[in-house]
């Protein structure tokens, strides 16, 4: 028989229905009632389950909607212990803002990256589309994030990535920058001084972890 933490982990990793969300809440509450530490429930239960599905995705055995759903289940468990997490001063592995640059209204690419970062333990602030450099700067300051992720689908809007990086540097903000989108590539990232480039959601997660030296 599975231990309660193993059961939580499995519920996160293989959950595929609305009932799974309720199930993990109950299990998390039970683990608390049984006297498990918050850190233990997180590391060996909720996050462990997320790591399992994450590894399966990286190996090509799981798909994006499954990872996103597992994240939803994990978050349901986190809600149960939210107050205790805050009290214990447990931090996310990193904080990130994501947005599509000024003049560009394409949404889905950066939304996907935001969701996947969240699934892998980042606290994510999705600013939306058509985001001016100064708005990115304000968000970096307001949320004290470690990572700024920008997307552009068009070559005509791509220069806004350079403008945003320039604005961030001008303010002297300590934040890593990660870019993506159809016209971007590593060469362009180097030319504008971005810290990283990711061609798809999977590499975005990898790159984000690598830049912040986490995970």
């Amino acid at each position: 028989m599975l231990s309660i933490l193993e059961a939580i982990s499995e519920a996160v990793a293989v959950g595929d229905s609305v009932e799974s969300v309720e199930h993990v809440k109950k299990l998390t509450q039970k683990a608390l009632d049984d006297g498990y530490e918050v850190r233990d429930i997180l590391d060996n239960g909720l996050i462990d389950g997320m790591n399992t599905i994450g590894k399966r995705w990286v190996n090509g055995d799981a798909y994006i909607p499954e990872v996103i759903f597992s994240a939803k289940i994990m978050n349901a468990g986190m809600e149960v212990i939210h107050n205790l997490i805050v009290k214990s001063d447990i931090k996310p592995i990193g904080k990130a803002v994501v947005g599509t640059v000024k003049g560009d209204v394409h949404d889905i690419g950066k939304t996907l990256v935001g969701m996947m970062l969240q699934a892998f333990g980042f606290e994510v602030y999705d600013l939306g589309v058509d985001i001016a450099p100064e708005v990115f700067v304000e968000a970096v300051k307001a949320h004290e994030v470690d990572l700024l992720c920008m997307s552009a689908l068009l070559t005509t809007t791509m220069p806004q990535m350079a403008n945003t990086i320039e604005a961030v540097k001008k303010e002297g903000l300590v934040v890593k920058t990660l870019i993506g989108g159809a016209p971007a590539n590593q060469e362009y990232a180097n030319s504008i001084g971005a810290d990283g480039y990711a061609p798809d959601a999977m590499s975005a997660v990898d790159k984000a972890k690598q830049l912040l030296r986490v995970g």
Partner: peptide, 9 residues
């Protein structure tokens, strides 16, 4: 159609 592994359209 989204490639559900990589997210590519």
């Amino acid at each position: 159609c989204m490639d559900m592994k990589s997210g590519t359209a």
